[in-house]
């Protein structure tokens, strides 16, 4: 069989969405960014909005996201993507607007901007990639770093007594009346990636309703920063990160998910995962 025999429409089982440019991504193998980029691009293609969308990229590993998406993009200053997205949506309400940020960008330096954009109920989609570390600058502690976890700026493990607690910012945002849809997803298995795509599609569709922020956190690994292989990192994430940052919806159509209400009632109690990590 020749190459020409194989490349036929009837044999086609997968192709790159036209919303992604034909560019090689700079992300580390095993990182969640590439998968989430593809999911967003597919959603944009399926919704037919490629010519009516503006993306906002952050500062961090995904600073160059605009090199991969074939849609109009604005590169924000560190942490300010929600302010940028707010302005663009207000000035161009007919345009779909999404921000894309990591945990250092969103939860640390950009904490005020994300809080207030959510509190104002901006009619935008926010994508938040949480890998518990600063990836691009070389693996420093983030607000989302688990207690006990080692990074280059907490080489003996994060000690909450001197370095603060692991921040569950998404849970806080869900409690603001300006958020309409808040969910935590992951992409490290095909099943989870499919579920995540459904969530991101929902988060974009919601912009048609003008009901407030749709916020999708995607818990990811940072195998380079965590100093593990991709497989080890996913296993570690499953055993540790997801115990403290469990997957699932927190708020749907402006209403709390019953499991989320049960879960926040336990926030004043010690978390087993953090306790076991700290004991090491």
């Amino acid at each position: 069989m020749t190459r020409e025999d194989i490349i036929k429409p009837e044999n086609l089982v997968y192709k790159r969405t036209s919303v992604l440019k034909d560019a090689t991504m700079h992300y580390c193998p095993g990182c969640g960014h590439g998968t989430v980029h593809r999911i967003i691009a597919e959603v944009i293609e399926e919704m037919g909005i490629q010519d009516n969308v503006v993306g906002i990229s952050p500062v961090g590993c995904s600073v160059l996201a605009y090199n991969y998406f074939d849609v109009d993009f604005v590169e924000a200053a560190h942490g300010r993507a929600p302010a940028c997205a707010s302005a663009i949506k207000r000035l161009r309400p007919e345009t779909f607007v999404f921000s894309y940020q990591g945990d250092g960008d969103l939860a640390s330096i950009g904490c005020a901007e994300v809080m207030h954009a959510c509190n104002r109920g901006e009619n935008i989609t926010m994508i938040f990639i949480n890998n518990g570390i600063y990836g691009m600058t070389g693996g420093q502690m983030a607000p989302t770093t688990l207690e006990g976890m080692e990074t280059v700026t907490c080489p003996y493990g994060r000690d909450p007594e001197i370095m603060g607690h692991t921040m569950r910012l998404t849970e806080a945002l869900a409690q603001l009346p300006g958020t309409y849809y808040v969910t935590r997803q992951a992409v490290y298995t095909p099943a989870l990636a499919r579920k995540c795509k459904k969530a991101i599609r929902q988060a974009f569709e919601n912009q048609k309703l003008n009901k407030g922020v749709s916020f999708v956190e995607v818990t990811s690994n940072c195998n380079s920063g965590w100093k593990m292989t991709a497989v080890q990192a996913n296993k570690w994430m499953e055993e540790n990160t997801l115990k403290y940052f469990p997957l699932g919806d927190m708020k749907v159509n402006g209403k709390f998910d019953p499991k989320f209400i049960e879960r926040i009632a336990t926030f004043d109690q010690p978390n087993e995962t953090l306790y076991s990590l700290r004991k090491k």
């Binding site: 503006v54 604005v74 302010a83 940028c84 707010s86 663009i88 000035l91 161009r92």
Partner: peptide
């Protein structure tokens, strides 16, 4: 900080 970044983004769209 938010105001000037809103201006940055608004200006990015030609407004």
């Amino acid at each position: 900080l938010a105001s000037i970044n809103m201006v940055y983004a608004g200006a990015s769209t030609g407004k």
